[in-house]
């Protein structure tokens, strides 16, 4: 074996080792979700145990699990739909009719995403209190819309900018109006971009906790708050808690796997091309 081959072999081994360590916590969460409470706290930890769906069943049949799941879906999908409706025309206008201020405007929008929520939550909380919007899942969806709007606009803008102007001009020459141009020409072209922007927005909304923790209570809280509250409510029932966390992350795990590239880009805002 030549030296080069050996180094390569060692590096591959190292990569597997790192992957094992990185994946272990998730693996353990899933394993524990399928254990009984007794097996979950056994010391030394049990790798071989009797598989049981008991914990999952218990987590699912708690009366409020379905409600929180539904809240997560409403707030994530609702906010994403609203953000797309606002973002598509805005990104279209910025990409195809740029002015001198477009870049500045875009970065200003991004700055709103990066600001810490602790700097704005007090007025929001007080207004929601006065409007009786606290513990309302649609009000939460509105907050998520504002939260994710910059990312969605930016993702769409980055894609629209790459669309050749000739295509749009050709449609214009054929007599299409601006709304027609947008609906018939641009949207069909940008299904992948819209899908990835939507995925990103859903994942971010699904994982959000600061706003939902402060603005919702028993009625409107999504799964993230439920999982966080599990801690105080049932501190020591590890198997049940793992089962609940596991079901809570399953949807985003699939979406996150599909949208890994978007997650990295969305967090970086294209700083690195």
């Amino acid at each position: 074996m030549s030296q080069g081959q050996r180094i390569r072999w060692e590096l591959t081994l190292l990569a597997y080792l790192a992957a094992g360590i990185m994946f272990f916590p998730i693996f353990w969460l899933f394993l524990t979700g399928f254990k009984s409470e007794g097996d979950a706290i056994a010391i030394p930890p049990k790798l071989v145990f009797t598989l049981t769906l008991e914990s999952i069943q218990e987590a699912l049949t708690r009366s409020d699990y379905g409600l929180h799941f539904l809240n997560s879906i409403i707030s994530a999908l609702g906010s994403t739909a609203l953000a797309l409706i606002l973002a598509i025309p805005a990104a279209y206008s910025m990409a195809f009719y740029p002015t001198q201020r477009t870049q500045g405007l875009l970065l200003w929008m991004i700055s709103t995403k990066m600001m810490p929520p602790v700097g704005v939550i007090i007025p929001v909380y007080l207004i929601f209190r006065d409007l009786r919007w606290l513990d309302n899942v649609w009000a939460l969806a509105l907050i998520y819309t504002v939260m994710n709007l910059p990312v969605v606009i930016w993702t769409l803008y980055a894609f629209f900018r790459e669309v050749p102007h000739e295509i749009m001009e050709a449609a214009r020459v054929d007599g299409a109006s601006i709304p027609q141009e947008l609906l018939r020409v641009l949207l069909p072209l940008s299904v992948p971009a819209i899908a990835s922007a939507a995925l990103l927005s859903i994942i971010l909304a699904w994982n959000e906790t600061f706003w939902s923790l402060n603005l919702t209570a028993a009625q409107a809280s999504p799964l993230s708050v439920y999982v966080a509250s599990f801690k105080t409510a049932e501190g020591l029932f590890w198997a049940k808690m793992s089962a609940a966390s596991m079901i809570a992350i399953l949807p985003v795990m699939v979406m996150g796997w599909l949208a890994q590239r978007q997650l990295v880009r969305g967090l970086t805002f294209g700083a690195i091309k």
Binding site: A18, N207, M253, V264
Partner: peptide, 12 residues
């Protein structure tokens, strides 16, 4: 695998 944890929420 390495990017997997990133799609989880900080809560989980």
């Amino acid at each position: 695998i390495f990017l997997f944890p990133m799609s989880l929420s900080f809560i989980v």
